[in-house]
């Protein structure tokens, strides 16, 4: 099983600005002072030694994650703007002439999680089949509405792919192309749902746009069971804990601290911090990752939890 992140930013897409790029170049050049960078190998080694926040970027697309299950059909988690490059990737890999089946699993219907659909090229290719799995009975209406005038010039009816809508009941496992799938209800305005995928002894959980009430023991136990022994959990870590339970309480998001605590209790293998705050720079996200790794270290109780920060392009093999 493979997990690939195409969009990892929360709430709204963002992009690097010219000052952001300039700041990265300045930092890289400052670090290069006194180094022998006279040949390409030395330059490449130096670039590789820089922090990801300097040499790279966490990216700015809104939520979209792909899971390669090992089956022949494709799994897409949310339709944020990251689904546009995912569509281009699929076309490059399979071409337009070979029909594909895409299973879309929606966490919820907020705009940042569906806004990429109009730019997902496979919807314009006849023969493609797109099955939208959602716990929200209004998923079809939401996707049709964003295509309607005056929001977009291409109506839903103009999509050439065949769409199917599957309304799923949380807590009831079902099978898709040989993979066991189960949804879990989460606390978010209008409700959201996490998804767990299991196949051939591997498991991945996608849990975004989910606020956790720390005082609710039943809720906590439910998430620990949902995350139990997963190889990877992609987790909404948008805010600091202090913000998540004070000024941003009821905003529907969680924190790195709660992610670590739940994943430690559930004996998860890897925690991927996800749905990054759009106002955060690459440096701030890198700091959150560093702090979270330290928190995991000082709270470790025998089980080692690997902590990663999602970025547009991150690929994990489970």
């Amino acid at each position: 099983m493979k997990l690939r992140c195409w969009g990892t930013r929360g709430s709204i897409p963002v992009s690097l600005t010219a000052p952001d790029v300039r700041a990265k170049i300045v930092r890289a050049l400052e670090g290069a002072q006194g180094r022998n960078l006279s040949h390409p190998g030395a330059i490449a080694a130096y670039v590789d030694s820089l922090g990801f926040d300097v040499a790279g970027t966490f990216g700015g697309h809104s939520s979209c994650v792909q899971i390669e299950t090992g089956g022949s059909e494709h799994f897409i988690l949310d339709l944020g703007t990251g689904v546009r490059p995912l569509g281009a990737h699929m076309l490059a890999r399979y071409g337009a002439a070979v029909p594909q089946t895409y299973h879309v699993f929606l966490s919820h219907l907020h705009w940042d999680h569906i806004m990429g659909l109009p730019f997902f090229t496979p919807v314009y290719i006849p023969g493609n089949r797109i099955v939208v799995h959602s716990c929200h009975p209004h998923a079809e209406a939401a996707l049709r509405r964003q295509q309607a005038e005056p929001s977009f010039p291409v109506r839903f009816e103009q999509f050439s792919a065949a769409f199917e809508f599957d309304t799923v009941t949380p807590g009831q496992a079902f099978e898709v192309d040989g993979t066991r799938v189960i949804a879990h209800a989460q606390r978010h305005a209008g409700d959201s749902y996490g998804w767990r995928f299991e196949r051939a002894g591997k498991s991945a959980v996608y849990s975004t746009d989910s606020e956790h009430r720390l005082e609710d023991e039943d809720e906590r136990a439910g998430f620990i069971a949902f995350f139990r022994d997963a190889d990877v959990v992609v987790f909404d870590a948008m805010y600091s804990l202090a913000d998540a339970i004070s000024v941003k309480a009821d905003w529907g998001h969680s924190s790195n601290i709660v992610g670590v605590e739940l994943c430690q209790a559930a004996r998860v293998g890897r925690l991927v911090l996800f749905h990054h705050e759009p106002a955060y720079s690459d440096t701030q996200i890198a700091n959150v990752l560093q702090e979270t790794r330290r928190f995991e270290q000082i709270t470790r109780d025998g089980h080692v939890l690997e902590v990663l920060s999602a970025w547009d392009g991150l690929e994990l093999t489970l």
């Binding site: 600091s240 804990l241 202090a242 913000d243 004070s246 924190s255 790195n256 601290i257 702090e291 979270t292 330290r294 928190f295 000082i298 709270t299």
Partner: peptide, 15 residues
Amino acid sequence: PIVTEVFQVSHFNLV
């Protein structure tokens, strides 16, 4: 020291 770090990571030292 441990609790100090927890305060820092959670940003409770700011509130």
